[in-house]
């Protein structure tokens, strides 16, 4: 096994790659992280930093959605869970006066608990019922939040969430990026370990999975718990960043957009949600001068994917990498490509 040979770096790589291809798998993600870390030093526009911060939080949400989807379950109320995290965190900071760090983590745990309760009720039923139940719950949660009077701010939303630190964009940028990296590491390990394999096994055939000793109910609840925790984290973090939240960001359409982030990025790849979120948020932003017309860009991306791209943008990337490898192997006269 490679980790014993390469010491700390190898151990780290071994922790991540279940297929032992070691450090090579880390190159691109590390490069991307370095790039992201450097950006605030180079980019001056606070607005651009703001967009990136938003993207970071939504990437966490999209990754958390994927964690559930790989088990074959479809949480059609996932954005509402983000709302639970946002409101729980926001209300804890605002009304209970808890320190923001505690509020955020507490909100994530709270969201996770709710997710577990719901998943538990549906764990022994077909995944279809979980999907339907999630849908209803999502809608109900939004309505309940709307009905919360002064506590939740009702339809106009909750404002006045106390700021964290010095509330500067650059600080928030690194905080959000840090949360993203931690969450991504945690979720990557989740998926690439045997846990992830078991979830994918359940998704392909729950009968076979059970017959080889995989406790379907346990794993389904686990997937939802993990997904709920991270989406709650994203929601609470985002709430503290923007200071004002409204239920219109956590409705059914918001859930559909989270799914779009995952699908457009490519559903067969861990990096899909990351790529998809960046694409679907950044590209329309680039065209923001179109103002009212900018949603056409988002729709355009969806149509582009639907009509022209079978494997999503992450799939396109894999294709490119495979081509490059094949080209390299040809160049060096090496018959066996990777």
């Amino acid at each position: 096994m490679t980790d014993s040979k390469n010491g700390a770096a190898g151990k780290l790589a071994g922790w991540f790659s279940s297929r032992n291809s070691g450090l090579s798998r880390c190159v691109i993600p590390v490069a991307a992280v370095v790039l992201l870390v450097v950006i605030p030093l180079v980019v001056e526009s606070l607005y651009n930093l703001h967009i990136l911060i938003m993207v970071f939080f939504y990437v966490i949400a999209a990754l958390s959605l994927r964690a559930i989807v790989i088990s074959g379950q479809f949480p059609l109320g996932h954005a509402a869970y983000m709302g639970i995290g946002a409101y729980a965190g926001g209300m804890a900071s605002k009304w209970l006066g808890l320190p923001p760090g505690l509020s955020i983590v507490g909100a994530a745990v709270f969201t996770m608990i709710i997710g577990i309760l719901v998943a538990y009720s549906f764990a022994r039923l077909r995944a279809l019922y979980y999907a339907m139940g999630s849908l209803f719950l999502g809608v109900a949660i939004v309505q309940i939040l709307n009905a919360g009077g002064t506590w939740t701010g009702g339809y106009s939303g909750l404002s006045g969430i106390p700021p964290m630190f010095d509330n500067s964009k650059v600080t928030w940028y690194y905080v959000a990026l840090g949360l993203l990296i931690l969450s991504a590491l945690a979720l990557y390990r989740f998926e690439s370990s045997r846990i992830g394999t078991n979830l994918k096994a359940i998704s392909q055939s729950h009968l076979v999975a059970e017959s080889v000793g995989i406790d379907e109910a346990k794993y389904r609840i686990l997937a939802v718990a993990v997904g709920s925790f991270f989406v709650g984290l994203a929601g609470a973090g985002y709430a503290h960043y923007v200071g004002t939240i409204a239920t219109s960001n956590y409705n059914f359409m918001a859930t559909m957009w989270l799914f779009m982030y995952v699908l457009v990025g490519g559903i067969n790849n861990f990096y899909g949600p990351i790529v998809g979120t960046f694409i679907l948020i950044l590209i329309p932003e680039y065209f923001r001068s179109l103002k009212t017309y900018s949603p056409f860009i988002s729709a355009g991306i969806l149509f582009l994917f639907v009509y022209l791209m079978p494997n999503g943008f992450a799939g396109l990337f894999e294709l490119a990498v495979a081509r490059i490898k094949g080209w390299r192997a040809g160049r060096t006269g090496n018959a066996a490509a990777d």
Partner: peptide, 19 residues
């Protein structure tokens, strides 16, 4: 003959080794 259709042959067997 249900299998893990999207797994490879080897993955099918190793994924089944839970017990």
């Amino acid at each position: 003959n249900l299998l893990f259709a999207d797994f490879t042959v080897l993955q099918n067997v190793s994924a089944s080794s839970q017990v």
